[in-house]
Design a protein around this nucleic acid. Sequence first.
DNA 1: GCATGTGAACGGATTCACAGCG
DNA 2: CGCTGTGAATCCGTTCACATGC
Lengths: 205, 205
Amino acid sequence: MATVQVPEIVVRRLPLYLRELMKMGAEGREITSSQELGARLGISSAQIRKDLSHFGEFGKQGTGYNVDSLAGELKRILKVEKAWDVVVVGIGDLGRAVARNTGFVDRGLRIVALFDSDSAKIGNRVGDLTVETTADMVASIRTHGVRVAMLAVPAREAQAVAEKLVEAGIQAILCYTPTSLSLPVNVRVEYLDPVLRMQQMTYYL
Amino acid sequence: MATVQVPEIVVRRLPLYLRELMKMGAEGREITSSQELGARLGISSAQIRKDLSHFGEFGKQGTGYNVDSLAGELKRILKVEKAWDVVVVGIGDLGRAVARNTGFVDRGLRIVALFDSDSAKIGNRVGDLTVETTADMVASIRTHGVRVAMLAVPAREAQAVAEKLVEAGIQAILCYTPTSLSLPVNVRVEYLDPVLRMQQMTYYL
DNA sequence: GCATGTGAACGGATTCACAGCG
DNA sequence: CGCTGTGAATCCGTTCACATGC
């Protein structure tokens, strides 16, 4: 195993392995192999073994991997054994859908606060949370030490809101808004623009 | 320019270039350069020039690129000059948010029908569309010749529904459900799992 | 002068193939 | 024997650097 520095592209595949392993666990499977896991994900078995080898030796030769223990190792590596506190900013249709999503907690993310700048929305309940005003956002995030945010505000506000989040101490932003953000390099940003993904496919139609 | 076969990774970047060019156009910019575009996207200028070179010569030496005409070329390459008809299957919180999104049409995607299997939802209006029953889905998609779908059903139904979509003639699926689908190789699938993206970031926290 | 388009050089990721071990 | 873990080989993508032409 290499302790040098793990290529980002490897880290990007680990959550996928984890998701499939959790699914296998739910199916009652106890053992799997790099071959089987790869087949389910459309990835080569060598790729999976090589990826895992960056972090240690988790398998038994001749046997394969224990599903639950490998899932546990991946959770540990990805730091999602416990759930991170997450804030959602922008409670429009999409933000509301995100906030209502019950699939986050099991996977290491717990939504703890919702913010919006529209006074008409302040005080609205979504799931078991109440929408708060963005005026209080920075202080609230800082007080609670939240480090992860989901951003679902209109495109023209995205950059400004993101800067406020960074000011508040947020270090990872999942951006649902179709815009490139310009932020300090120590802040990580991932984008989810469905149209980009669609346009990747229309090329091939 | 190479007519051989464009690497998929290049195709995946084109929609991003297009999105930024449209934004520049909206800002009133007429000319740009690979350098400027790259700076806005966090991509090297050489990368952008090389990517574009797979499809032709769109710039003027010493000057750069005309924003609108390069955007037009990319739309043509990605086949999004006209909007594709798209169906949305699964009208829960997320599907409803997707269906209400007004940002699709300008970018080459027009939602034309909504389907759900829950009889309580059939007939509900979302935006200016009415939710239809999945019982009619295959026939309806086939009749209208729709080739693109967005899938936002619960995980356990995703595979079965996706197979019905394929049967109906769908060739590209954007899957909002956190599951790997197993479909014929001629059907393209892109996945949008926010948790995967988040877990890529928690590794670095 | 300036920015494109591109062959060549480089670096990194994937695949191969096998030693090692249960 | 079967499957992992891993160096070596291969493949592929990015960057370099410059000729070309506005």
